[in-house]
Simulated assay, not measured.
Amino acid sequence: MFDGVEELDCIAPYEVFSAAAVHNAGGVEVRYVTTGQPRLIRCGYGTGIRVKHRWAPHEADLLVVPGGGYKRREGPGIWAEIDKGTLPRALAAAPRSGLTISSLCTGAVLLSAAGLTKGRPCTTHHGAKAYVEEQGGVIKNARVVDDGDLVTAGGITSGLELGLWLVRRELGSDVATGVETMLEYEARGTVWQAS
């Protein structure tokens, strides 16, 4: 989480994963985290979200990097995070066996700044595809792109698909179907998956 994050980018997958905890006997722990001190994060449209946990990728099985602020070069958002460098450096150091790093919307721009999309199949918001491709990402025209330990999703609402795909992949079809029923939402669009 970072100031300027798009509300739906972080809330949609958070809700999907939280709902998965209801349908999975082993439970699921979901946290908002930030690379700085835990604090109130101010989202792109003004919503405040209190983040209580610090960045700890060694404790996670999955990281979701949201986007926000792509069209605003000034002010909070992904460009400010890239300029600061803290989040891209943290992302670059995060990969390890057993960890899946994912993004949605322009969160893929942050992954690109960390060098994580270079030479890898990925996707992002339609307005940022050319940028991510210029940075070495191999853009696939799909709602969700699963390249094993790197899973990316398209624009803002694709956070629901990202969450549901990862729930299906990690916890099984029964859990994913239960979450879809609970949310009254059926996953849509294509998932491109590496063979």
Rank of each mutant, 00 (worst) to 15 (best):
A187V: 15
A94W: 03
L150W: 03
E29F: 12
G67H: 02
L110H: 01
A60M: 08
V167C: 03
Q37I: 04
G26M: 08
L62D: 05
P121A: 01
H58Q: 10
R96Q: 09
H126E: 11
A60Q: 07
G85T: 10
R50E: 14
D147C: 04
Y14M: 13
S173Y: 13
N141D: 14
R168M: 11
T35Y: 02
R96C: 06
V5W: 03
G75R: 06
H23K: 15
K52G: 13
P88V: 00
E59P: 12
K84A: 11
T117C: 05
L63D: 02
V22A: 12
T152E: 01
A153H: 05
H53A: 10
W192S: 03
M1V: 12
A25W: 11
A94D: 07
V22R: 14
V145P: 03
N24K: 15
G36M: 01
R73V: 13
V5C: 09
T124D: 08
T100D: 08
R120P: 03
A187K: 13
E59R: 14
P121H: 01
D9I: 07
R73A: 07
T190R: 10
P13I: 02
C10P: 06
R72W: 11
T34Y: 00
G46H: 07
G127D: 12
A128S: 14
V65P: 04
E74W: 04
